[in-house]
Design a protein around this nucleic acid. Structure first.
Lengths: 164, 164
DNA sequence: CGTAGATACTTTGATGTCCAAGTAGTTGGA
DNA sequence: TCCAACTACTTGGACATCAAAGTATCTACG
């Protein structure tokens, strides 16, 4: 289904012809969007055999990086920048899969801790290997471009409240 | 809600510590994902007052670039790289808003053409202005970084079947 | 011709995300 | 001590996306 021209350049030409302005940012934004679509598809495909998708893997990876293997729901949302309701949903899936369970916080009755189970730790490890084996979906991005993209976008993220 | 550290660099450190490999691609992929989240949120917010979101705007823009202001549903999906069912859904919304209508193809009874209506053309114009006014969501991305991101990702997209 | 297979689109169902509202527990000031 | 405001999470509803199945139409080949 590949087109025989770059749809972004085509759109940029039309954009400029209409005098719509901001052509360079339009191109960059569209490139990011399309790259994300490709990435997301490849990553989810690689994780599917493990009953994971990217969101679920991110949670398992985050938990496996903590000392106790557990985190409050709210902290997970903060770190992964997703809505609290999405965290609830994701944790419910992981719980059904036997990868995590939920426990009450000792001192604060409002807080629910997601706790990594042995099967979840194994799944995180397998997921990391699966992602490494497909170059994290970035097969085709030249090594020197990887850091360039990372650096260019780091400034953008910082300027937009992603971190201080 | 902003963190006081870069969560990507933090994840990269943990990643490397665990010997999970592919740290540089992980950083690039995560940066693209987060940038996309920020972009998408800003773009949708800018378009919301016009009863549009990014998908709907893309369709209107695409139609406005054609000579006759109409395209088969399938072509729209090809150009925007979205599933046929999503095109059906998006066109139904745009139809309910009075921005497009659907007509039968003269020669092929299977084909449905989405046709831009005057209100839709106006909305596309307004949307383009709204996006230009927020720098297409890329406020904070330095001008010299814009083309750098576009170029770096063009190679990636081409290598992944986006276009020839 | 007639029909099997291809094509174009829609419908249905499963997922995932967000927002807004609801519930439960905590905290600080009168 | 008490209660109003705040915090943490869950629930329900709206939307968007995709996959797979269903419907209608077209085309190619015997």
């Amino acid at each position: 289904m590949a087109l025989d021209f770059d749809p972004i350049e085509e759109a940029a030409r039309n954009w400029a012809t209409r005098g719509w302005g901001g052509t360079d940012v339009m191109r960059a934004a569209t490139a990011i969007t399309r790259a994300h679509q490709i990435l997301h598809g490849r990553i989810d495909a690689a994780l599917a055999p493990l009953d994971l998708n990217f969101s679920r893997f991110e949670v398992l990876a985050l938990l496996s990086f903590t000392r106790a293997g557990e985190l409050p729901m709210g902290k997970i949302g903060d770190r992964l920048q997703v809505h609290a309701a999405s965290v609830t949903n994701t944790i419910q899936r992981l719980e059904a899969l036997g990868f995590v369970d939920r426990i009450r916080h000792e001192d604060d009755g409002r807080t629910v801790l997601a706790r990594l189970l042995p099967a979840g730790r194994t799944a995180a490890q397998s997921g990391a290997e699966a992602l490494a084996s497909i170059d994290y979906g970035l097969d085709g991005l030249e090594p020197e471009d990887r850091d360039r993209v990372t650096e260019a976008l780091a400034g953008f993220r910082a300027a937009n409240g992603d971190f201080a």
